[in-house]
Design a protein around this nucleic acid. Structure first.
Length: 745
DNA sequence: AGCACGCCGACT
DNA sequence: GTCGGCGTGCTC
């Protein structure tokens, strides 16, 4: 006789009897608590667990979800303190591979393993079977007293006897649900459990698109990789080269083997455009995983992934921690995107951890980007990754022609931000009924407001950053902490009325200028401020896609995830923005952003134009972009990184010191920098405190210190020891390790 | 006095 | 990560 469950955790009665006479069993359980390793729990009589079993255990007064872990339980603990496992959930145990992955990520990120496991088990609802939807089915004779309404209901259900919900049936018959209830009461109809609607079948053999010869070759390589075990392939192809359709061929190949596929996208790129393309290739939609999912959908998807019913998951970075039954491929699209990095709690890079997961489980990983990260480019050049290059747009259109506008000579008049050359090109585009995009990575109207009379500058009372004026809202907003106040009419310092001036442009101000220059053009601001909801955002993106807008003024939102087929002209209002901060990746990030945003021009039909307004046209990033030789940027950046020992030639960690006061955080950071061993032979170099990001998070100031170490040095071990030896720092230190884990495998 | 807040240690 | 205990400081 079997008791419980389909997952081999069943016990026969005979075995259960035997268990009664066995000595008590103590097992390690990883709990979602920030401690070094698993804790020990007793297994009650008759309960069968094994490594990976998902269990409920008590921690203090709480009940938490954890997983039985590997190895011997900690025996140093007083047996009297041991408590029982309360419950085993009827879901597949966490696989050996996923447990190893959790350990690996914990070790790499210096996070507690339980905190990493928490990312796997976060979906409490998924651990209980989903309650079936109640439906209506015929069950007996019609009642003696028939009415017109009852007849209609019975006619309809006779026509199609299954699959009705109460509301749908009543609606179809044009009656109220009370009529159906009445028929249930008479036994004519009955409530039954409806079978769950299955996931759409995905067909890997549907005819794909017609490939260019270059795409065809790339597809052959990817299919070959997909048939094999672990490898990493970088698809490096210009915007519009059809990378997605090419990696779909690898997805198809893995589907044919009956294994699961994960496609990771930056959150913002999870648009219906992508899902439509997927459906066109595979005849059905994939399972989705992102922050917008309802708890119910989240639970359903988690279970479908665990039971192997979801064949393809398209998701944001957290989809990496789902408990796949048989994962056979991960694709990381837009692999350079910083949205794959999680900064809080467990600080991980989903792109790098995808490679780790592939390595542990022995399946291929595909990275895709028009502007790959420097790390991935280096790894492909050293042969650690394979590289597939797509140099031409699939449509045959030429890449946009880029021109620098030197603002020192050709800039606009005072108080204006758009140079005459750019305005004239926009005029041409308007006349040709083509769309223009003005890109400025700065929300709001003006980044700084000051008093013309006394020089007072508006600062955030929490974090001392400048307050950004948002003129549409009539407010001054802190972009660090979200603090906002009404924009006053008089200066709060000297009391002078009408003395406040806005300094510098934001997208709202550019939109104002566009309104002055082109009063008849239909213009639209696209920034995270302009959408109250995701639906609103989709709606506005659609307007642009359909040509209902002539001029788009946008922040980095327009660089990512969404294609605008009618866009001909792109004007970068400030191409120098972002190049001059303390971030070691500033050049790379600016290069990627500008390449992506200018790549929006002329995707279909060609004839694209791009203008870069700059005060520093000799900057290497701009020179590479203007020459159209993107490789040039990589070669220069790689040489510079190699010389400086920065990733991927060395490793980087950020130590974040946080304190309630800014001065405190700074003082503490200085003390840490002094205390750190400054070893002249470069075994450790402390670069910081980095002057750049001084952010405020929930009332606490943060100061970032960058720590750099050459390849081969065990940065994790050093940091661990350092943190342990800094007791005064408790709660004030957080460490982010930001490096290329491939160097460890 | 009552309570809000922050710090700290325990949690198997 | 979460909770409870405890001290501080403030109060329609």
């Amino acid at each position: 006789m079997q008791i419980a469950s389909r997952f081999g955790q069943s016990v026969t009665l005979e075995r259960q009897k035997a268990v009664l006479f066995e000595p008590e069993r103590i097992v390690p359980v990883l709990v979602p608590v920030a401690v070094e390793g698993p804790w020990s729990y007793r297994v009650p009589e008759g309960m069968d667990v094994r490594p990976g079993s998902v269990v409920q255990v008590p921690v203090g007064p709480r009940k938490v979800i954890g997983a039985v872990w590997d190895g011997e339980p900690d025996t140093s603990i007083d047996p009297k303190r041991l408590r029982n496992i309360e419950r085993v959930f009827d879901v597949p145990p966490i696989s050996d591979d996923l447990r190893r992955f959790v350990e690996w990520v914990a070790n790499w990120t210096l996070a507690a393993p339980g905190m990493v496991l928490r990312m796997v088990l976060r979906v409490r609802d998924a651990l209980e079977p989903e309650a079936p939807v109640k439906g209506i089915a015929p069950a007996g004779e019609p009642p003696a007293r028939m009415t017109l309404a009852r007849t209609r209901v019975l006619e309809i259900i006779e026509d199609k006897p299954s699959g009705w919900t109460k509301a749908a049936l009543a609606d179809a018959a044009g009656v109220s649900t009370g009529v159906v209830d009445g028929l249930i009461e008479h036994g004519t109809l009955a409530l039954v459990d409806l079978p769950r609607k299955p996931r759409p079948a995905l067909d890997p053999d549907m005819p794909g698109p017609i490939f260019t010869p270059a795409q065809g070759e790339a597809a052959v390589e990817l299919r070959a990789a997909a048939r094999d075990g672990y490898s990493v392939t970088l698809i490096d192809g210009v915007t519009g080269s059809g990378k997605t359709e090419v990696y779909f061929e690898a997805v198809a190949e893995v589907l044919r083997k009956g294994r699961q596929v994960l496609v990771l996208l930056p959150e913002i790129a999870l648009t219906s455009q992508f899902l439509d393309r997927f459906e066109a290739r595979f005849g059905g939609r994939p399972a989705e995983w992102h922050s917008e999912l309802s708890p119910k959908m989240r639970a359903r998807t988690w279970r479908d992934v665990a039971f192997g019913e979801a064949r393809v998951v398209v998701g944001a970075r957290s989809a990496l921690f789902l408990p796949y039954r048989d994962l056979g491929l991960i694709v990381v699209d837009e692999e350079h995107d910083s949205a794959f990095k999680q900064d809080d709690r467990v600080p991980y890079s989903a792109r790098d951890m995808a490679v780790v997961r592939g390595h542990i489980s022995g399946f291929p990983v595909i990275l895709s980007s028009a502007t790959p990260s420097v790390e991935s480019r280096v790894n492909s050049e050293t042969g650690r990754y394979r590289r597939v290059v797509l140099e031409e747009r699939a449509s045959g259109a030429e890449m946009p022609r880029l021109t620098a506008i030197d603002m020192r000579n050709d800039g606009p008049e005072r108080g204006r931000w758009l140079a005459p050359k750019l305005v004239s090109a926009m005029t041409d585009a308007l006349e040709d009924k083509a769309q223009s995009l003005l890109f400025l990575n700065r929300r709001g109207y003006a980044p700084l407001t000051l008093c013309r009379h006394c020089g007072h500058r508006f600062q955030c009372s929490n974090c001392s950053a400048w307050l950004v004026e948002h003129r549409f809202r009539g407010q001054l907003v802190c972009h660090h902490c979200g603090h906002h106040e009404r924009r006053p009419d008089a200066c709060p310092a000297c009391g002078t009325a009408d003395s406040l001036v806005a300094c510098g442009p934001g997208v709202e101000r550019i939109a104002e200028e566009v309104g002055d220059l082109f009063p008849d053009a239909r213009r639209l601001v696209l920034s995270s401020d302009s959408f109250s909801s995701p639906e609103r955002m989709r709606h506005e993106l659609k307007l642009v896609e359909d040509g209902e807008v002539d001029i788009v003024i946008g922040t980095q939102l327009v660089a990512k995830g969404h294609n605008f087929p009618l866009m001909r002209l792109v004007g970068v209002v400030d191409a120098d923005l972002g190049l001059a901060n303390g971030d070691p990746r500033a050049a790379e990030k600016t290069f990627q952003l500008l390449a992506q945003v200018t790549g929006r021009a002329g995707r279909i039909g060609g004839g694209g134009l791009g203008f870069l307004q700059t005060y520093a046209p000799e900057n290497p990033v701009l020179r590479a972009l203007l020459s159209g030789d993107l490789d040039r940027f990589y070669q220069e950046e790689i040489a510079a990184r190699r010389a400086a020992g920065l990733p991927p030639f060395g490793r980087l960690a950020a130590i974040i010191v946080s304190a309630p006061q800014r001065s405190e955080a700074e003082g503490y950071a200085r003390a840490l920098v002094r205390a750190a061993p400054r070893v002249q032979d470069r075994s450790i170099v402390v670069l910081g405190p980095a002057d750049a990001p001084l952010a405020l998070v929930r009332g606490r100031h943060r100061q970032r210190i960058l720590v750099q170490a050459p390849r081969g040095f065990d940065l994790q071990a050093w940091l661990r020891a350092w943190l342990a030896a800094a007791p005064a720092a408790k709660g004030q230190l957080r460490v982010q390790v930001d490096v290329d884990p491939q160097s460890f495998m």
